[in-house]
Amino acid sequence: MQSSSDFLIFDKVTKVFESPDGGSVTALDNFSLNVADGEFVTVVGPSGCGKSTLLNLVVGLDKPSSGQILINGKPAWQQLLNIGYVTQEDNLYPWRTLRENVEFPLEIRGMAKSERRKRSEELLQRVGLAGFENRYAHQLSGGMRQRGNIVRALSFDPGLIIMDEPFGPLDAQTRIVLQQQLLDLWLQDKKTVIFITHDLQEAIALGDRVVVMTARPGRIRSVYDIKLSRPRDLHHLHDDPEFRTALSDLWDELADEVSAANAMGR
């Protein structure tokens, strides 16, 4: 079902890790998925299902053992500068102020200082961080830091945004605020987003499609279309019958995999 509008294509991607004692672990097995331009795809799965491996392959930190990843029709490794990456850990550079962090990718790309300043100011304004530009990471709360991480990944206007459980360490209140902010940002720019999470509700609330992965080796168990309309109001999504149906269907699928993962001793 490959179409011309597919922005990101995983074609039978397999990743095998060789361990020093001669054994090998298949982290990702025949992972195939087509993602349309501007689509928001969320990926859920039990821990150890190769989610992070998948992301490392996309951003070029690792190479697939076989298969290929295409971005805009070209191999992913030729498109590396077109990917924004938001990690789970709080990765703002502690020696840079919030503003300098947001401007980091722009600096690397040689953008003029005044232009950088304009861009970072606009982005920080959009996520409600105006007035905190000159703070260092340790002077910001967890939620503020993660918002900084997100706008840093958006600063250079990449075509593809990769997010690895970005809201994992935040408390429930902050999560919803940031999820809503992310959706609002996304609706403005319509970037292609791959969003990894272990939180099923989050996956449904944010995504156009939810990909459920199997326990190791990581394969696609199912892909579920979320028919919720946009823009979505995350504070009242739980009452939506479509949301409830999706949650109950997906929970059954995920529960199988979680118990399978636990049976493997993980």
């Binding site: 590396l80 990456y85 990690t87 990765n91 550079y93 980091f104 990718p105 690397i108």
Partner: peptide, 16 residues
């Protein structure tokens, strides 16, 4: 490592 990896993904290469 995470700082270096992330900078690499954001486009920083040897000198930068």
């Amino acid at each position: 490592r995470r700082y270096v990896d992330l900078a690499w993904v954001m486009g920083a290469r040897s000198f930068s």
